[in-house]
């Protein structure tokens, strides 16, 4: 029995079922390298580190992973490895677990279309930005989301480069405070209710 890609799948992007098998290492790699990279990028925020950590994950998995393994198992193995590799990265660099991979995503990392919350990172960033005053939101949007240099951002906002730098730092600090406070509020939501501390 064969299930073909063209058999009336309503979703625009057909997916391989997680219990199909990978025939060879190249298939394991091709199917997962983007996924692991994106996961790592979302946890370290820069390309060189994300590439490094992605390499470490695959190198570590090279021995244990064998063709013929089921897709779901390979993915959860890679994600588990990624979790360890990321923890070690933070231990080595800032000495604190700045970000971590949620054990809840250890299962499949990427489900078929419609299953997961696509654009998670975008939504999170938007939530952070929405909590900020206009000026702060502008500088962070230009710098982080649009990839503007400080100079370009300064021009866009009509301020000096020095001012743009100060603005960026303040905006980031305010965003970090709001995020931390939000985290605390989430935890206390049931008890505290509407308490606002701006």
């Amino acid at each position: 029995m064969i299930w073909r890609a063209d058999t009336a799948a309503p979703s625009p992007r057909p997916s391989v079922l997680p219990w199909a098998v990978y025939p060879d290492w190249d298939a394991i790699y091709a199917d997962n390298v983007g996924r692991i990279y994106r996961l790592m990028f979302s946890k370290v925020g820069n390309r060189p580190d994300a590439e490094d950590l992605t390499s470490q994950v695959f190198t570590a998995a090279l021995g244990p992973l064998r063709p013929g393994a089921e897709i779901g198992q390979v993915r959860s193995y890679l994600t588990t490895t990624a979790r360890t590799v990321l923890a070690e990265h933070w231990r080595r660099t800032l000495g604190h677990q700045v970000t971590e991979i949620d054990p809840d995503i250890l299962d499949l990392a990427e489900l078929p279309p419609g299953a997961g919350d696509d654009g998670d990172a975008g939504a999170q960033a938007q939530r952070i930005l929405d909590a900020l005053p206009e000026r702060y939101r502008q500088i962070l949007t230009l710098r982080f989301l649009r990839g503007y240099t400080v100079r370009q951002a300064a021009t866009e906002l009509g301020v000096s480069v020095a001012n743009a730098k100060v603005l960026q730092l303040r905006a980031l600090r305010a965003a970090a405070r709001a995020e931390t406070a939000q985290g605390v509020r989430d935890v206390e939501a049931n008890i505290v209710g509407e308490g606002e501390a701006s």
């Binding site: 990028f41 390309r47 999170q124």
Partner: peptide
């Protein structure tokens, strides 16, 4: 917070 923001930036889409 910087990482969370960068995660929605231009480099995040793929290797």
């Amino acid at each position: 917070t910087a990482i969370d923001l960068a995660a929605a930036g231009p480099d995040a889409h793929g290797p």
